[in-house]
Simulated assay, not measured.
Amino acid sequence: MRELVIRPFEARDEEAWRVLWRGYLDFYQAQCADEVYKASFARMLDPERPQQVGFLAESEGALLGLAHVIFHAHNWHLEEVCYLQDLYVAPEARGSGAGRALIEAVYRLADTRGAPAVYWTTQEDNRTARQLYDRIGEKTAFIKYQRPA
């Protein structure tokens, strides 16, 4: 396996990040307007918004995966908690360790910031990802609800 590097977003990554983000959205049969792409990427580069962070998995100059992270206040903790909002690895890079490495980078960042919890959600039938999540995380009994569209 080629060397895998996990690193924060850089301005030069926007075009390649868009390809990964599009793949993620396609997987979940979702769409975002172009201004959402632009704003989301800009937020993860903005030093005035340290609560939003983006990580990329890279190997030999190719971007293989992404992680979008949001730190936020929580009523059960004094410290902010860490929400791993989005995690995606390109189909050709699955099984490479990129997903695990991205989650571990999020864990390290959360530890550095003193966040007592890191959490994320996935669809129940996302079996491939859940194989990793079952090894690196703890499944909870919570069910997500949201306001109808």
Rank of each mutant, 00 (worst) to 15 (best):
L102V: 09
Q123W: 09
R108Q: 09
R100S: 08
W120Q: 13
T121Y: 06
R113E: 08
E124F: 06
A105E: 05
S96E: 04
R94I: 13
A117D: 02
V89F: 02
R130V: 10
V89G: 09
L109I: 08
A90E: 03
V118N: 11
A98F: 00
L109C: 11
A101K: 09
A90V: 00
A101M: 01
Y107I: 12
A129I: 03
S96W: 01
P91W: 05
L87A: 08
A101L: 01
A129D: 09
E104S: 14
T128I: 15
L102R: 12
T112V: 15
Y119P: 02
P116W: 09
I103Y: 02
P116G: 07
T128N: 00
E92H: 01
P116N: 12
A115Q: 00
A117N: 09
G97H: 03
D111I: 14
R130D: 11
G97R: 08
T121W: 03
R130N: 10
G95K: 05
R94N: 13
E92F: 09
A129L: 07
P116L: 08
R130Q: 14
R127N: 14
P91D: 09
R94Y: 06
E124W: 11
P116E: 06
G99Y: 03
T122L: 03
P116H: 10
T112H: 02
G99M: 09
D111Y: 11
L109K: 06
R127A: 15
A98K: 03
T122Y: 10
T121G: 04
Y88S: 13
R127V: 12
R100P: 01
I103V: 13
A129S: 08
R100D: 05
W120E: 06
A110G: 13
Y133C: 07
L109R: 08
A117C: 11
L102P: 10
A115N: 07
A93L: 14
D125Y: 03
V118R: 01
A101W: 02
V89S: 04
R113Q: 09
R100W: 04
